[in-house]
Design a protein around this nucleic acid. Structure first.
Length: 620
RNA sequence: GGGGGCGUGGUGUAGCGGUUAGCAUAUCGGCCUGUCAAGCCGGAGGUCGCGGGUUCAAAUCCCGUCGCUCCCGCCA
């Protein structure tokens, strides 16, 4: 070994020992006749002190191997050293003189007096500062190109470490509960349901392609039929869809499946895991245990979204029925067209400037909302508890009756000083617009406690949604999800009303996992495929193996999958999952370090029986 | 597929129609024996992402394009 100790372990009690350390030079402080090197390795930082002054060497330390570093004095070597050089140093551990300890460092009570110093590897000046947090500000493209340097930075090194701890904890948790870890193939079969597949050509089978797994869904169900009973895997998944801060083309899931269980069993086990995981890797308290359970309908009503951030209140309210016949055309017309009118209270927002309110309106537009109706309560209520016109600041109250205003104020539970914001549109616009507005208000009004872990379950999702583009019903979760027992009877007649045995787990407004109880009977699965509009031949071609497998004794089963990167990012307080991946891709799917994707040789294409089409010319 | 933001020495930024393109930090050299973002002195370093246009004059205005990023669509 080129080191006897790590750079993180020496303490005052080690004073007097002869040690050898190796690592990177985090920083050099050159005082001429006295040079300090902060030596860094994965485990910490230790100050190396280099000087010609014999007084600095402890007289009682004998180090026979130290005789001048190949002819150059240690001081001469140290003066050539620059940031990120890799060096090896031998010397005596010394307690620092009183008053010169550094409480910021775990090793700050000691220093190593270099008697022998060797440069193992020189380093170019890095494109950004490795030590400290200055590198956080650097353009991400630069950081990604030099990812191996970025990962040296304390923040990313910490995130890698945290991810390791989380995955280790998860593995041990499920090992201890009799789960079998099984690896499933990366080369699978493309199916049209769900996300776009990444596709891999087969050299040996011209014109045929594998698909990379969007998740090991079918394989884990087949493992249940195989009798594995409790399966899990830390599985890499691939989806060829547009990217976001919380989405990468390849990502990692905790994938899990259990036989002979109901939804509550899967939820309880995973809730236990998440509670103990949180205690293990985070100082933050969990807001509520057991985790609150919301139905999908409740979540949509209160928060306008199926992954609510419940760290703060500000629940939405609906006034559709009170303003259905309003003189205010926007409300009346929206309601007549089947829309809903919902709102949110902005605490103490009545005094917001017109510019701030316009900012909120702009905020809501990307979600399709045409605007925001708003009522600020600037004055006092009258004797009846109603707010007269002079107590309100609003462009719309002149179109509303006193009763309508009272209903809106009551619905909002608003008091003097509050601002009420309303959206009138179809539910698919109103809910997302207000859900995101709620988060924005929460942030602006400083209502979101960053030191809370607010887990919740969302259950009773609709099984199906109508895809107007393709004019058919499609599975919200996936086509193997079971309907609730009592809803099978209406699958054909009232598909919109069928609820699934599906559950999502949400943390601070991020969907970190989701799962379901699966269909395990061939004929039910067939009904499901037919409901999704697949012909018998399509079913046979794409899913025949599943239907066949179900005929050989399939146990009732269900499971869950959790996004490892999202979980780690939340515990790491990272804004993007890229911060918790070693080598992430850009939002256009590029790897800036390897410069992938890249063209391949014609020979390689020929071998794969592939011809690349020219980009279609602009039809101009 | 669509919309927003950003792009100026290595890095982070100021400048937003006429500047010698400024500052900080890193970097290089000199001085320096107790620093830990060491300090002091001095130096070098920029085709202002790229292409085109407007103008007497463009980092600055316009158009296009590329890259990064956020969002909508898409995606569990």
């Amino acid at each position: 070994m080129l080191k006897t100790h790590t750079c993180g372990e020496l303490r005052a009690s080690d004073a007097g020992k002869s040690v050898t350390l190796s690592g990177w030079v985090n920083r050099r402080r050159d005082h001429g006749g006295l040079i300090f090197l902060d030596l860094r390795d994965r485990f910490g930082i230790t100050q190396i002190t280099v000087s010609d002054d014999p007084d600095l060497n402890l007289p009682d330390v004998t180090n026979p191997s130290s005789n001048g570093t190949n002819g150059s004095s240690t001081l001469e070597v140290a003066s050539q050293i620059r940031s990120e050089f890799v060096v090896q140093v031998s010397g005596a551990v010394q307690k620092r003189p009183p008053g010169f300890e550094n409480p910021e460092l775990e090793t700050g009570e000691v220093e190593v007096i270099a008697s022998d110093l060797e440069i193992l590897s020189e380093a170019l000046t890095p494109p950004f500062v490795i030590s400290g947090s200055q590198g956080d500000e650097v353009d991400e493209a630069v950081r990604l190109k030099y990812r191996y340097l970025d990962l040296r930075r304390p923040k990313l090194a910490r995130n890698l470490r945290l991810r390791h701890e989380i995955v280790r904890f998860i593995r041990n948790f499920f090992y201890d509960r009799d789960f079998l870890e099984v690896e499933t193939p990366i080369l699978l079969k493309s199916t049209p349901e769900g996300a776009r597949d990444f596709v891999v050509p087969s050299r040996m089978n011209p014109g045929r392609f594998y698909a990379l797994p969007q998740s090991p869904q079918q394989m884990k169900q087949l493992l249940m039929i195989a009798g594995v009973e409790r399966y899990f895997q830390i599985a890499r998944c691939f989806r060829d869809e547009d990217l976001r801060a919380d989405r990468q083309p390849e990502f990692t899931q905790l994938d899990l499946e259990m036989s002979f269980v109901e939804a509550a069993d899967v939820m309880a086990l995973n809730e236990e895991m998440l509670i103990s995981l949180s205690a293990e890797v985070s100082d933050k308290p969990i807001q509520q245990v057991p985790f609150p359970v919301l139905t999908y309908d409740q979540a949509m009503a209160k928060y306008g979204i199926d992954r609510p951030d419940i760290r703060f209140g500000l629940e939405l309210f609906e006034v559709t029925d009170f303003v259905r016949n309003s003189g205010f055309g926007v409300f009346k017309n929206a309601a007549a067209a089947g829309g809903i009118i919902k709102g949110i209270r902005y605490p103490q927002g009545a005094s917001l400037s017109r510019k701030d309110i316009d900012g909120l309106i702009e905020y809501v537009k990307p979600y399709g909302a045409k605007g925001l109706a708003w009522i600020g309560i600037t004055g006092e209520a009258d004797a009846n508890g109603n707010y007269p016109a002079e107590s309100l600041r609003s462009p719309i109250t002149k179109f509303l009756s006193e009763e309508e205003i009272a209903a809106i104020v009551a619905g909002a539970a608003a008091d003097q000083g509050d601002l009420i914001l309303l959206v009138a549109d179809e539910p698919g616009v109103t809910n997302p617009a207000l859900a995101n507005l709620r988060l924005e208000i929460g942030a602006r009004a400083n209502l979101i406690d960053p030191n809370l872990l607010a887990f919740c379950w969302v259950v009773d999702f609709p099984l199906l949604e109508y895809d107007s583009q393709e004019d058919r019903w499609s599975a919200i979760h996936h086509p193997f999800t079971s309907a609730r027992d009592e809803d099978w009877s209406i699958l054909e007649q009232r598909p919109a009303d069928v609820k699934a045995k599906a559950y999502d787990v949400v943390l601070n407004g991020w969907e970190i996992g989701g799962g379901s109880i699966r269909i395990h009977r061939s004929e039910q699965q067939m009904r499901m495929f037919q409901r999704l509009g697949l012909s018998e031949s399509e079913v046979d071609e794409q899913f025949g193996h599943m239907l066949e497998a179900f005929q050989y004794g399939a146990p009732p089963h269900g499971g869950i999958a959790m996004g490892i990167e999202r979980v780690v990012a939340l515990f790491a307080d990272a804004q993007s999952i890229r911060e918790v991946m070693a080598f992430p891709k850009t939002s256009t799917g590029a790897d800036l370090l390897l410069e992938a994707p890249s063209p391949v040789e014609d020979d390689q294409l020929a071998e794969l029986h592939i011809a690349v089409r020219e980009q279609e010319a602009d039809p101009q």
